[in-house]
Simulated scan of single mutants.
Amino acid sequence: MFQLDSVRHRYPGGAELAFPDWSLAQGGRAVLVGPSGSGKTTLLSLLGGLLRPSAGKVSLAGQDLGALPPGKLDAFRGRQVGFVPQRPHLIASLTVADNLRLAQYLAHLPQDSQRIEAVLHELGLAGLGNRKPHQLSQGQAQRVAIGRAVVNRPALLLADEPTASLDDDAAEAVVSLLQKVADEAGACLLVASHDSRVKDRFETRFALGVSKEQAA
């Protein structure tokens, strides 16, 4: 589903980050672990096509992301990648439904209100489509962010520290929800986290900046 080949990335004025030649098959589930500064968010951004590597190749669904010009990369990312940030980052001026509809628009996909309603129903948000983000609880807003990530049935679902600042019950619910929606979308799921509650839910672990013993 995704493949890393000799991937490196350097931010201006910063040290170079080198990533192992990892791969994850379609339908795979994995957690990405490592201390702060080890490159977890950078790797998610590379996999999602938000960053281009300084060297090496990132392939997603058989497509070399570096071979796509910016416009085609944006459309490909919108169709193939769903990204759940640590904070929802919903557009305040849009309704819940329109936040999901925007994801369809940016991916150059037809506006599919039935799909949006189905996603909101699956996430326990039925009837909230006309609300604005400020009218939602923190948990509801996070579910909308997950809905926005999966509305286009992505091949790869990425989540960056989704349980940060959550209590045990909420963390359990979020991880279960991510796994559930990944199954329903037929997506590959990669969750970046330093949270042991998350790490223990995945058999496959990719570790950055730590030894195999620390990752276990």
Score class of each variant (00 low, 15 high):
Thr95Asn: 01
Ile146Tyr: 12
Arg87Glu: 13
Arg148Ile: 05
Pro133Ala: 08
Gly139Arg: 03
Arg143Cys: 09
Gly129Ser: 03
Val151Gln: 01
Leu136Thr: 10
Leu123His: 04
Gln104Ile: 06
Ile116Gln: 03
Arg101Cys: 06
Leu90Ser: 13
Phe83Cys: 00
Ala118Asn: 07
Ser137Ala: 08
Gln114Met: 08
Leu109Trp: 00
Asp74Val: 13
Leu94Cys: 06
Lys132His: 15
Ala75His: 09
Gln104Trp: 01
Val81Lys: 13
Val119Tyr: 09
Leu94Trp: 05
Asp112Asn: 14
Tyr105Ser: 14
Ile116Arg: 02
Arg143Pro: 12
Arg101Tyr: 03
Leu100Gly: 02
Ala75Glu: 14
Glu122Lys: 09
Ala75Lys: 13
Gln114Ile: 01
Lys72Gly: 04
Leu106Gln: 07
Leu100Pro: 05
Leu102Lys: 07
Val151Phe: 04
Ile91Ala: 08
Ala149Met: 08
Gly127Trp: 11
Ile146Cys: 12
Ala103Phe: 08
Val144Cys: 06
Pro69Gln: 11
Ala107Ser: 11
Ala145Met: 05
Leu102Cys: 05
His108Asp: 15
Lys132Ala: 12
Gly147Arg: 07
Ala149Arg: 10
Gln114Gly: 14
Gly71Tyr: 12
Arg77Ile: 02
Leu109Tyr: 06
Val150Met: 11
Arg131Pro: 07
His89Tyr: 11
Gly78Asp: 11
